[in-house]
Simulated scan of single mutants.
Amino acid sequence: MQKSDFRGVLPAITTKMTADQQVDLDGVKADVVFQIEGGVDAIVVCGSLGEASSLTVAEKLAIAKAAIEAAAGRVPVLLTIAEDSTSVGAALAAEAEKIGVEGLMVLPAMRYLADDREVVVHYRAIAAASNLPIIVYNNPLAYGINITAEMLKDMADEPKFVAIKESTGDTRRINETINALGDRYQLLTGVDDLALESLVLGCHGWIAGLVVAFPKETVAIYKLVQQDRIKEAMEIYRWFLPLLHLDIGPKFVQNIKLCEAIVRGTSPVVRQPRLELVGDEEKAIRAVVEQGLKTRPDLAKYGF
């Protein structure tokens, strides 16, 4: 992947925690190595799945440093900017560039539901703070702010805005964005259980969640779509779909960390206010994951 080219599979990795809910930097490094060995194209740290809302700025920078060290130049490491204030977000962007982060995934400021003008000003302030390319993360379902085509047109004069993480949950937005803006932005799908549809409609990449447990399957789907082998991609995708559904809902972090624990033996610990799944919730997730493992496709059939 070239700088400012965010094609391919970009895992939004979880943030591993010790038993006492402290960041496990060795766990972060192990995740990065596991993903690279699975064939991914970049690493995204400290996103929603990475429990950004419960991490300090110092922890985010430490996680980014650990990921960069583990990646060792093999793939770019991107840091998520999801702060309560624009000034803190801008300062984090500047520090990220200093430590070697190669790109940013940026959300609107948290908590306050800004209007369109305020959102655009926020993004421009983050862009001004560093020379790093930026993925504009649009997830109105989770964060209450919809970054419209008109706003993206307004922002199009800033070359640092290179891509959009499309997480509206409405695949119509892909064609609408292309119709309004042509190829100005790279489009990245951010909803796991709409990923194949989104890639077929023209998304250039997949910022993925369940990739953290199943990188090779995720990469295979992406590559098959790029090769126009849609029927084969669909076979893997249909197997994957019950697992991809785990990326949806308020407990998606717990769901996916439990999935990782079952598949890879990693820690399922989350940071409070989240708590690990118990009882019927845990049983339901375990059943989905165990069924997926029993029926896991043979990727050699597809040339992987």
Rank of each mutant, 00 (worst) to 15 (best):
I178D: 05
I145Q: 05
G182I: 02
I126S: 04
N139M: 07
M110N: 08
A163C: 07
R173D: 15
L181P: 05
G144H: 01
R111N: 13
V136Y: 00
I135A: 14
L132D: 04
L187C: 12
A149H: 10
G100F: 01
R184M: 09
N139I: 13
T171E: 14
I134K: 08
L187G: 10
E176K: 13
M155E: 01
S167Y: 06
A128S: 11
L181T: 06
G103M: 07
P140N: 12
N146H: 11
I174N: 11
A142M: 10
Y137T: 09
G182W: 05
K165E: 11
T168P: 03
V101G: 05
T171V: 15
Q186D: 09
T171C: 14
G182P: 00
R184K: 03
L152D: 01
N175L: 15
Q186C: 06
K153F: 06
E166C: 11
L152V: 01
E176G: 02
F161Y: 02
A180W: 04
P108E: 04
I147T: 00
I145S: 00
A142T: 07
L132W: 11
E158C: 13
M105Y: 11
A109P: 00
N146L: 13
I135T: 03
N175M: 15
P133F: 12
D183G: 02
M151L: 09
L113V: 12
I147P: 10
G103I: 07
D154L: 08
R124L: 13
V101E: 03
G169I: 06
L132S: 08
E102Y: 06
D183I: 07
S130N: 03
Y123D: 10
A163W: 03
D170A: 12
T177S: 09
I145K: 02
L188A: 01
A156Q: 10
L132E: 02
H122G: 02
I134T: 09
A180I: 05
R173C: 15
A128I: 06
D154T: 04
A142N: 13
S167E: 01
E166G: 08
L187A: 01
D115E: 12
V121M: 11
H122Q: 01
G144D: 04
A180V: 09
V162I: 01
I99F: 07
Y137M: 08
K153H: 04
A129R: 09
N175A: 14
T168I: 07
L104M: 12
E166N: 02
L152E: 07
L152I: 03
I174K: 00
S130M: 08
E102R: 14
D115R: 11
M105V: 13
S130W: 05
N139C: 06
M151S: 05
